[in-house]
Design a protein around this nucleic acid. Structure first.
Length: 306
DNA sequence: AGGCAGGTGGCCA
DNA sequence: TGGCCACCTGCC
């Protein structure tokens, strides 16, 4: 079966055109949905469709031949506005314009390929869950863990074959052994610990949402299983802090390649460089670099001159 | 067959 | 701070 396949049939409600100037090409839409920000989007049911779940929402998306974005809303609770908000398209143009592509040839090269890729606005709680799971795992494995968590502990989404991800409250009721059964490995202890922490402090994540980014990061770092990289991903993809630049192994590698002066810098140094160099939209640059690292271009064909 | 994967936590200089 | 190692699990 193809990677990311829906694996079930689905009767879709009518397609609706989303009232947005869609920036997407097929590649940038795919990269936005399954490129490591979110882990619950699948191919299908149609050849060019995507179907995904976030919060208590579910929808299918497709691009028309003229580049319009259409959605089929799978739950009563999901409005076109919810989809637009989730896709983060209202702020994308501003972020793209804020990147220093004119003065940085490296960025200019990435822009040609990845402009249009969006930064998602995901529910903070499940962003936290997903990225605690992500530690030392590949995208396919992260997807498998979240699938099992939703199967076992999630809530059914009415009128769909899907389940939501479990709330932290629900997770706090699950035993660590049950969590291990979801294939979480040692992350089960992190999930259980964070669930217990949040149970003792209702409103913690809401409070984080109201904090300036630096303090929000400090707060997230108190959670078991949350280190610098996970905290930054939660800030960027969950709390909408688009200036944050998470540095993982892929990012460290490609930065060292594209900016030879940075070779050998540690992650903290790279993040500081990125925040200063890329500015308020550093998070979008991070996603361009990440996509570029994961999808290396085939070697250029030999020139006619030989 | 064994190393390695989108890290974190703990421990030591 | 900076460096090193163990840690679940599954894919290459």
């Amino acid at each position: 079966m193809e990677k990311f396949s829906l694996g079930t049939t689905l009767t879709l409600p009518a397609w609706e055109t989303l009232e947005v100037a869609s920036p997407f090409q097929a590649e940038t839409l795919a990269e936005t949905l399954v490129g490591g920000q979110a882990f619950r989007w699948f191919h299908g049911p149609g050849e060019a469709d995507w179907t995904g779940i976030w919060g208590r929402h579910a929808a299918s998306l497709r691009l028309t031949p003229v580049g319009n974005l259409e959605a089929s809303l799978l739950t009563e609770a999901t409005s076109p506005g919810d989809v637009r908000d989730y896709l983060g398209l209202d702020r994308l143009g501003r972020l793209e314009a804020a990147l220093p592509c004119r003065s940085d040839p490296v960025l200019a090269t990435l822009e040609k390929r990845w402009r249009g890729l969006s930064l998602l606005r995901q529910p903070p709680g499940e962003t936290l869950l997903a990225f605690i799971c992500s530690a030392n795992k590949q995208i396919l494995q992260i997807r498998a863990m979240l699938q099992q968590l939703s199967d076992r502990f999630g809530e059914p989404l009415a009128d769909t074959p899907f389940r939501s991800l479990p709330s932290w409250e629900r997770l706090s009721e699950a035993g660590e052994a049950d969590l291990r059964d979801c294939g979480l490995g040692y992350r089960a202890a992190h999930i259980a610990g964070t669930a217990a922490f949040l149970k003792e402090r209702p409103g913690f994540l809401d409070a984080v949402a109201a904090l300036p980014t630096g303090q929000a990061r400090e707060a997230l770092l108190k959670l078991p299983g949350v280190g610098p990289k996970v905290a930054d991903c939660v800030l960027l993809f969950g709390f909408g802090r688009t200036e944050v630049f998470p540095v993982d192994t892929w990012i460290a590698r490609i930065l060292g390649t594209r900016y030879p002066d940075l070779a050998g810098w540690n992650r903290r140094q790279l993040a500081t460089f990125a925040r200063i160099h890329f500015g308020e939209a550093a998070g979008l640059a991070q996603q361009w670099f990440f996509s570029e690292a994961r999808h290396p271009l085939p070697p250029a064909p030999p020139s006619p001159e030989g």
